[in-house]
Amino acid sequence: MNVGIDTMGGDFAPQEALRGVKKYLEEDKSNGIKITLFGDAEAIKEIIVAENIPTGSIEIVATTQVIGMHEHPTKALKEKTDSSIAAGFQYLAKGKTDAFISAGNTGAMLVGALFNLKTIEGILRPVISSIIPKQNGGTGLILDVGLNADCKPEQLNQFATLGAVYARHVLEIENPKVGLINVGEEEGKGNILTQGTYPLLKENQQINFIGNIEGRDTFNDKADVMVCDGFTGNIILKLAESIYDISKKEAPESGYLNRFNFEIYGGTPVLGVAHPVIVGHGISKATAFSNMIRVAEKMLKTDVLHKLKDAIQPR
């Protein structure tokens, strides 16, 4: 397995990305994963020496350009073909790496994933998901969290299937409960989208659908997989991030609230494209990068993308 990493993406690049690589290599010595680093070769080499990072499983691919956090994604990818993100996707598309990670420009990562990689046959739209800590000590999955602001019922139904497969094989939830985020629990509640989605989920034999869930159910154990459009999901995700920020100021010793630290979960996988792509937060530090590598590793070892394909195209 070979995991590609954009070392130039994020507010603390490239140092924190490389510290994350070091952390991963020190903690997971027996996994045999190769890591390909994309970015400023001289800067990478200097940090490798300064941080005493083992190089036996590392390859460096020199790039000369960086896509900034606020650049227009499509324009930047088209004009900066020697950027660390563009090169990372080129390697992934050609099979030179098996997964790609970045904490850089989120839009560029999503555009790169959509236009450089094949979408799994049968996927209506790729989706991004995020981990939500549950009060019972477990974790839940919410999707979409921003890629598809406007959706159709058929797409939410497919998101539910993708989320259930990911939760089963990567989060190791044996029979994940799937809930539709809505403004009420009763069937028939909600807007046109949720009203149209409910009967599709109810008939979906690929999932364990438990019905509608409300906002107050997001952090309890009512549902393991929570389905919504990207507009709603992104608001919930940013709310969860704000809860963590507030908790560090008001209740720093809260075991539960500390689990809202995004670094624990690494990054957000793009589900529906042919290879693992992990998008990290722009303020990711070493722990987040290390855990993003672990997410990519788990996705590859469980062969979850083929399982997603089988679920979308049942034999």
Rank of each mutant, 00 (worst) to 15 (best):
M1R: 13
V3P: 05
T7D: 02
M8A: 07
D11V: 08
F12R: 07
A17E: 11
V21H: 03
K22R: 08
K23S: 10
L25Y: 07
E26Q: 08
E26F: 10
D28I: 10
K29C: 01
K45T: 06
A50Q: 12
I53M: 13
Q65P: 06
H72Q: 13
H72K: 11
H72P: 00
I85Q: 10
F100G: 14
N105T: 13
A113V: 03
V127A: 15
V127F: 11
I128E: 12
G146Y: 08
A149R: 09
A149E: 05
A167D: 05
V170R: 01
I173G: 15
G179M: 10
E186P: 06
E187H: 00
I192F: 02
I192W: 02
G196S: 12
E203D: 15
I207C: 10
R216F: 00
N220V: 06
V225N: 07
V227Y: 11
T232F: 09
L239H: 04
E241V: 12
D245H: 08
K249C: 03
E250R: 06
E253W: 01
S254L: 09
L257N: 09
N258Q: 14
I264H: 13
P269V: 14
V273D: 12
A274F: 00
A274L: 01
H275Y: 06
S290R: 15
V295H: 01
M299K: 11
M299Y: 02
K301A: 00
D303Y: 00
D303G: 15
